[in-house]
Measured scan of single mutants.
Amino acid sequence: EGLCAVCGDNAACQHYGVRTCEGCKGFFKRTVQKNAKYVCLANKNCPVDKRRRNRCQYCRFQKCLAVGMVKEVVRTD
């Protein structure tokens, strides 16, 4: 048992190249599959942790990419 590289929640295994929780795994997968574009309403440096991970989708997705999650391994079929 480890911690999610994105939000610090409990994470049992790796998803898309990085140890993440189920919440961040699902968020990343949905974002890539929908080709979603998010906008940060602040300064693009919002805190992303277990308690606040749902407040800014833009910053959460940027953190997913920054920690090494790989868009190309998300299935789109």
Rank of each mutant, 00 (worst) to 15 (best):
Glu1Ala: 02
Leu3Phe: 10
Ala5Pro: 11
Asp9Ala: 15
Asp9Trp: 09
Asn10Ser: 03
Cys13Asn: 02
Cys13Ala: 14
Cys13Met: 15
Cys13Trp: 13
Gln14Val: 14
Gln14Lys: 15
Gln14Gly: 11
His15Asp: 12
His15Lys: 08
His15Met: 13
His15Ser: 09
Tyr16Glu: 14
Tyr16Gln: 12
Tyr16Ile: 02
Gly17Trp: 03
Gly17Asp: 02
Gly17Ala: 09
Gly17Glu: 07
Gly17Phe: 02
Val18Gln: 06
Val18His: 03
Val18Ser: 07
Val18Asp: 08
Arg19Gln: 09
Arg19Asn: 14
Arg19Ser: 12
Arg19Thr: 10
Thr20Ser: 14
Cys21Phe: 00
Cys21Tyr: 03
Cys21Leu: 01
Cys21Trp: 00
Glu22Ser: 05
Glu22Leu: 09
Glu22Gly: 06
Glu22His: 11
Glu22Asn: 15
Gly23Val: 11
Gly23Lys: 14
Gly23Trp: 10
Lys25Gly: 14
Lys25Trp: 11
Lys25Ala: 14
Lys25Glu: 13
Lys25Asp: 11
Lys25Val: 13
Gly26Ala: 09
Gly26Leu: 06
Gly26Trp: 03
Gly26Lys: 03
Gly26Pro: 01
Phe27Glu: 00
Phe27Lys: 01
Phe27Ile: 01
Phe28Gln: 02
Phe28Ser: 03
Lys29Ile: 15
Lys29Asn: 06
Lys29Gly: 05
Lys29Arg: 07
Arg30Glu: 07
Arg30His: 15
Arg30Ser: 08
Lys34Trp: 05
Lys34Arg: 04
Lys34His: 15
Lys34Val: 10
Asn35Trp: 02
Asn35Val: 02
Asn35Met: 06
Asn35Gly: 10
Lys37Glu: 05
Tyr38His: 14
Val39His: 01
Cys40Tyr: 15
Leu41Trp: 01
Leu41Val: 12
Leu41Gln: 04
Asn43Leu: 09
Lys44Met: 12
Lys44Thr: 10
Lys44Asp: 08
Lys44Leu: 08
Asn45Asp: 11
Cys46Ser: 01
Pro47Leu: 11
Val48Ser: 08
Val48Met: 10
Asp49Cys: 01
Asp49Ala: 06
Lys50Gly: 10
Lys50Trp: 10
Lys50Thr: 14
Lys50Arg: 05
Lys50His: 07
Lys50Ile: 02
Lys50Val: 11
Arg51Ser: 10
Arg51Asp: 01
Arg51Val: 10
Arg51Trp: 13
Arg52Val: 11
Arg52Ala: 12
Arg52Gly: 13
Arg53Leu: 07
Arg53Tyr: 04
Arg53Trp: 09
Arg53Lys: 02
Arg53Ala: 13
Arg53Pro: 12
Arg53Cys: 09
Arg53Asp: 06
Asn54Pro: 03
Asn54Tyr: 15
Asn54Val: 08
Asn54Cys: 02
Asn54Arg: 06
Arg55Gly: 10
Arg55Ile: 01
Arg55Asp: 09
Arg55Met: 08
Arg55Trp: 10
Arg55Val: 12
Cys56Ser: 01
Cys56Asp: 01
Cys56Arg: 00
Gln57Arg: 04
Gln57Phe: 05
Gln57Met: 15
Tyr58Trp: 09
Tyr58Pro: 00
Tyr58His: 15
Cys59Ile: 00
Arg60Glu: 01
Arg60Ile: 03
Arg60Trp: 12
Arg60Val: 12
Phe61Ile: 12
Phe61Ala: 03
Phe61Glu: 03
Phe61Met: 13
Gln62Glu: 04
Gln62Val: 06
Gln62Trp: 03
Lys63Val: 04
Lys63Tyr: 05
Lys63Glu: 00
Cys64Arg: 01
Cys64Leu: 03
Cys64Phe: 00
Cys64Ala: 06
Leu65Arg: 11
Leu65Asp: 02
Leu65Ile: 04
Leu65Glu: 10
Ala66Arg: 07
Ala66Phe: 04
Ala66Glu: 09
Val67Asp: 01
Val67Trp: 01
Val67Ile: 13
Gly68Phe: 02
Gly68Ala: 04
Met69Leu: 09
Val70Thr: 15
Val70Lys: 05
Val70Ile: 14
Val70Asp: 07
Val70Trp: 04
Val70Gly: 11
Lys71Glu: 10
Lys71Gly: 08
Lys71Trp: 05
Lys71Leu: 09
Lys71Asp: 04
Glu72Thr: 13
Glu72Cys: 03
Val73Phe: 12
Val73Ser: 03
Val74Trp: 05
Val74Asp: 14
Arg75Met: 12
Arg75Trp: 08
Arg75Val: 11
Arg75Tyr: 07
Thr76Cys: 14
Thr76Lys: 10
Thr76Pro: 11
Asp77Trp: 05
Asp77Met: 08
Asp77Glu: 14
